[in-house]
Design a protein around this nucleic acid. Structure first.
Lengths: 178, 178
DNA sequence: TATAACATGTAACAAGTTACATGATTTC
DNA sequence: GAAATCATGTAACTTGTTACATGTTATA
């Protein structure tokens, strides 16, 4: 929740925008970073406005649907700083949600467990390929940092999967020898 | 969502239990793996029962509050297998939520950014210490696998943070020299 | 005798998603 | 003239959390 608010505020820190622009940017450029949906963004803008963190002004060109321009206020900037500090220094302390399955892997025959982990490995490598080809800005700031972190984690996943598959393979072979 | 359901079904695969036992086990032994709350577990049990995935039978000893014993049904076992396969083979494709902050780190003075990342590093190392001392079963199965994955990811985080702090330090020094 | 542990659950709320509704303008 | 894009939003639903309500039994 904090992250979505931070994201909206962060985009408004760069420049005043209307809702459509913000959603557009998230969908087009931040698909790898956030999966926030339109309705959520609009709701957050409303909430932020009620809290005095953003100002709204209506603009209209000709007969087009009116655009609500959102600008961050001083209070909003303070909120942005606060969220940013908190998010940057904190660490999530629960297992990534996909990992519950690992606990129960023994309920499957070894061969199938191996096949599923292999599938996961394949998908991880595909994602890595996608992220590797995402355009970077090269100065190691902004979105780049976020992407580089994500890549590092996925590489770790890949290596861990390879190792785990290897270990499982060994133990299933020695099992069969008994 | 699927994960929570999988967790409950998985615990019932081991043995029939009543709700209190399940919650107890999650709180006591799986605190590092899941943060599911009591009300959620009870709600999931209800849902699973309505879907025909678990059977309920009421037991009463003396005057104590009655216990609802939950047992997994055949349909429930099928559901368990289905969820397990899907969860094991899939990969989340969005950045971990804490990472949005990285995108905006340039909005802070370099010195503060460094301090916040250092704090994050410290907390990561603390968590690693905790996880390292969690009791293991040693056979590389069950919860162990989940914990070992989590440890691998945290180690990756730690290394990435160290590297990133180093890089930021360098660039902030060269910045000052200009 | 107080309080911790046992045992179950509900009600109110918060956050987010899906799907829908509306209407103008541009492009094919 | 149909479809895509621009632009905004709401209503219903799902999931999950917090906080509360209830009552028993063992323990300090």
């Amino acid at each position: 929740m904090d992250e979505r608010e931070l994201l909206v505020l962060g985009l408004l820190m760069a420049q005043s925008q209307h809702g459509y622009q913000i959603n557009e940017f998230i969908e087009r450029n931040l698909g790898q970073v956030s999966d926030m949906k339109k309705a959520t963004a609009y709701a957050i803008l409303k909430r932020l406005n009620q809290a005095g963190c953003v100002d709204v002004s209506v603009e209209q060109e000709g007969n087009r649907p009116p655009r609500q321009m959102y600008s961050i206020t001083e209070r909003g900037e303070a909120r942005f700083q606060e969220l940013l500090r908190s998010v940057l220094s904190s660490v999530e302390n629960v297992t990534p949600s996909g990992d519950i399955g690992l606990m129960f892997i023994d309920h499957l025959p070894a061969s199938e467990a191996l096949a599923l982990l292999a599938e996961r490995l394949k998908r991880t490598e595909q994602l890595l390929a996608v992220l590797g080809s995402v355009p970077r800005h090269g100065h190691g700031h902004g979105v780049d940092l976020s992407i580089s972190h994500r890549i590092a984690l996925l590489q770790c996943d890949r290596d861990w999967l390879k190792e785990t598959i290897g270990a499982l393979l060994k133990s299933s072979v020695s099992e069969r020898r008994k």
